[in-house]
Amino acid sequence: VKVFRALYTFEPRTPDELYFEEGDIIYITDMSDTNWWKGTSKGRTGLIPSNYVAEQ
């Protein structure tokens, strides 16, 4: 598990995607895809765009 911080707010387009706000901490559990990672924030899990976060 790696810890990342959201650089921007992300509004999901599908139920599989995770909503998060700029500054949120996201725990990444799967980075197997280059563009979409699986992450958890505020008790919810979903896909996030990798270019919206920076490693802490």
Rank of each mutant, 00 (worst) to 15 (best):
V1L: 12
K2P: 06
K2D: 03
K2N: 08
K2T: 09
V3S: 08
V3Q: 08
V3I: 13
R5D: 03
R5E: 07
R5A: 07
R5S: 07
R5H: 09
A6Y: 04
A6G: 05
A6S: 03
A6M: 02
A6Q: 01
L7K: 09
Y8N: 08
T9W: 04
T9K: 12
F10Q: 05
F10R: 12
E11Q: 14
E11M: 14
E11T: 14
E11F: 15
E11I: 15
P12N: 07
P12T: 05
P12C: 04
P12S: 07
P12M: 12
P12D: 02
R13V: 09
R13S: 13
R13P: 05
R13W: 05
R13K: 12
T14E: 10
T14Y: 12
P15E: 14
P15G: 09
P15L: 10
D16H: 11
L18Y: 01
L18F: 03
Y19D: 07
Y19A: 15
F20D: 00
F20Y: 01
F20N: 00
F20V: 09
F20I: 11
E21V: 10
E21D: 07
E22V: 14
E22R: 13
E22F: 07
E22C: 07
E22M: 13
E22Y: 09
G23V: 02
G23F: 04
G23T: 02
G23S: 03
G23H: 05
G23D: 05
G23I: 03
G23W: 05
G23L: 03
D24L: 03
D24Y: 05
D24G: 01
I25S: 05
I25E: 08
I25Q: 05
I25F: 09
I26T: 07
I26A: 00
Y27I: 12
I28Y: 01
T29H: 14
T29K: 06
T29E: 10
T29R: 05
D30P: 02
D30A: 05
D30M: 05
M31A: 06
M31C: 13
S32H: 09
S32R: 11
D33I: 05
T34C: 13
T34Y: 09
T34R: 14
T34E: 14
N35M: 14
N35C: 15
N35T: 13
W36Q: 03
W36M: 08
W36F: 08
K38E: 09
G39I: 03
G39K: 00
T40F: 15
T40E: 13
T40R: 10
T40N: 11
S41I: 14
S41C: 15
S41M: 12
K42C: 11
K42L: 07
R44Y: 07
R44A: 09
R44Q: 11
T45A: 10
T45S: 13
G46T: 01
G46W: 03
L47S: 04
L47N: 06
L47F: 12
I48H: 00
I48S: 02
I48V: 15
P49W: 05
P49L: 07
P49Q: 05
P49D: 05
S50A: 14
S50L: 03
S50D: 03
N51M: 11
N51G: 12
N51P: 06
Y52C: 12
Y52E: 02
Y52I: 06
V53I: 09
V53M: 11
A54C: 12
A54G: 10
A54Q: 14
E55N: 07
E55L: 13
Q56A: 15
Q56Y: 15
